[in-house]
Computed example of a mutant assay.
Amino acid sequence: MIRKVFIPRSSADAWARTLALIAVIAATLFLMWQSEERDTGNPEAEQLRGPSEPDSFVVDSHYRAFDEQGRLEIRLTSPRIEQFENDNRAELQAPIARVFSEQSPEPWIIEADEGSLLQARGLLHLNGNVLVTRTAPAGETTLATEALTLNDNDSTVYTDQPVTINEPYGTTRATGMKAWIDERILELNSQVEGRYETLR
Rank of each mutant, 00 (worst) to 15 (best):
T175E: 14
E114S: 08
P51S: 12
D113N: 13
P8Q: 10
L143G: 13
A94K: 01
N86F: 08
P162F: 06
R75V: 04
Q191V: 12
G194S: 10
P79C: 13
A16G: 13
D39K: 13
G128W: 04
L72M: 13
R184W: 09
T171P: 07
Q47F: 13
F30W: 00
S101F: 08
L76V: 02
T156E: 05
E68I: 05
N166T: 12
V59H: 05
T40K: 04
D55R: 04
D60A: 02
P43H: 13
E114C: 03
N42Q: 14
G128I: 06
D182H: 14
G194D: 06
R49N: 15
Q191H: 10
Q93C: 03
D13Q: 14
R173I: 06
P105A: 10
W15K: 09
Q83A: 00
L123N: 03
S155W: 12
K178Q: 09
A97L: 01
A94D: 01
L31W: 05
P162C: 15
V163W: 02
V132L: 15
G176H: 09
A147H: 04
Y169S: 12
A179G: 09
H62D: 09
H62S: 01
D160T: 11
D60T: 01
P95L: 02
A138T: 08
L92N: 00
N127E: 08
E114R: 01
S61T: 00
W33V: 05
R173D: 10
E183N: 12
T159V: 07
V130W: 15
Y63V: 09
A120D: 13
Y169F: 02
S104H: 10
E146P: 09
S56M: 07
A16E: 15
V58C: 03
I181F: 06
L48E: 10
N153M: 15
V24K: 06
M32R: 11
D152W: 01
V192E: 07
T171S: 10
R98G: 00
S35N: 12
T133F: 02
P8E: 11
R71N: 08
A20W: 05
R184S: 15
F100D: 01
A97E: 03
E140S: 04
Q47A: 15
E183Y: 13
D13I: 14
A90K: 00
Q103S: 12
P95F: 01
E193L: 07
S10C: 12
G70F: 05
V192A: 05
E193P: 07
A94I: 01
I109G: 11
A136I: 11
Y158V: 04
P8W: 11
L124H: 02
T141E: 10
R121W: 11
R89N: 03
T159G: 05
P8L: 12
I81K: 00
D182Q: 14
M32Y: 10
G115A: 03
L143W: 13
E37T: 08
V24D: 07
I2M: 12
T149D: 03
E106S: 15
T135Q: 04
E36K: 03
K178N: 08
G122A: 04
G70A: 09
N88M: 03
E183G: 06
N86R: 05
A136C: 08
N153C: 15
P137M: 02
L76C: 00
L150M: 12
N42T: 06
R121S: 06
M32E: 10
E73W: 03
G170H: 11
E106W: 12
V59C: 05
S190A: 11
V130E: 14
